[in-house]
């Protein structure tokens, strides 16, 4: 379980997160939705260790990760992708995904400098693993040697997910993975995410694409003005008046 308890964060007078508690179980897609400014991005940055919370706790499978550095949090099995693509643009697609496997390196630094046979073997394994992940994300071999930054937007999104998967995460935070995708691509993404969840990965989906969220997530948390205002299954959330109000404004309220 990725358990977020009573998270609070203030930026000066702005209460960006108020007592946010979210549970994301393994093997399921949990969505976090909410209008712009609801605090979703702050939440992501707090979970991944770029912003330290003023209060509250985050645990991954029982291990507290609050206060850890971002790379340490990744090593606890929590990976993420980004709302604005954060690619290693000058690397090839394959290299980019292999980079996700840095924490799985077994040979010592000296062995790496000398490039011993073991290092070669290790690197070959990493490359094979990366290729499998690229195939999972439906990125064909013809793209593997292309410069990552030159790929079409939708493909870069998938490379980012493959890179996150390469860290072998137990939980994955996806920050608006469907942004910039067309309907067809978005549905394909949903099925891929469902498949990944089927492998036991707990997926936290932060998304504006309501169709994607409603069709593919098991549980939805709705945020507004820094707090969680509702949660439940897609059907439950859809009918809650406070959700409709947060999304559509007062005059449309139930």
């Amino acid at each position: 379980m990725l358990a977020i308890r009573n998270l609070n964060k203030r930026f000066g007078g702005l209460h960006a997160l108020r007592d946010v508690s979210i549970d994301a179980p393994p093997g399921q897609i949990t969505a976090v939705i909410g209008p712009n400014g609801a605090g979703k991005s702050t939440l992501m940055n707090v979970i991944s260790g770029f912003i330290s919370p003023d209060g509250g706790s985050i645990t991954v499978a029982g291990t507290p990760i609050t206060g850890m550095k971002p790379h340490e949090i990744c090593r606890q099995g929590l990976a993420r992708t980004f709302q604005n693509l954060q690619m290693f643009s000058d690397m090839t697609v394959l290299e980019t995904v292999i980079t996700g496997r840095t924490r799985h390196r077994r040979a010592s630094l000296v062995a790496n400098l000398l490039m011993t046979p073991r290092v070669w073997h290790d690197e070959k394994d990493a490359a094979q693993h990366a290729q499998t992940l690229l195939e999972t994300m439906q990125i064909g071999p013809s793209y593997w040697q292309r410069r990552a930054g030159d790929l079409p937007y939708g493909l870069q999104r998938r490379v980012e997910i493959a890179r996150a998967l390469a860290t072998e995460p137990a939980y994955m935070l996806l920050d608006e993975p469907a942004a910039g995708l067309n309907d067809e691509e978005s549905v394909a993404l949903g099925s891929t995410l469902r498949e990944l969840a089927g492998r036991g990965i707990g997926i936290v989906l932060i998304e504006h694409d309501i169709e994607l969220v409603m069709n593919f997530s098991r549980h939805i948390f709705v945020m507004d003005a820094g707090g969680v205002i509702a949660d439940g299954t897609p059907e439950q959330v859809r009918s809650k008046p406070e959700v409709v109000k947060a999304y559509l404004g007062d005059e449309h309220g139930a």
Partner: peptide
């Protein structure tokens, strides 16, 4: 930024 999130120290 992205590198640290890949577990690179």
């Amino acid at each position: 930024y992205a590198a640290t999130l890949m577990g690179i120290s």
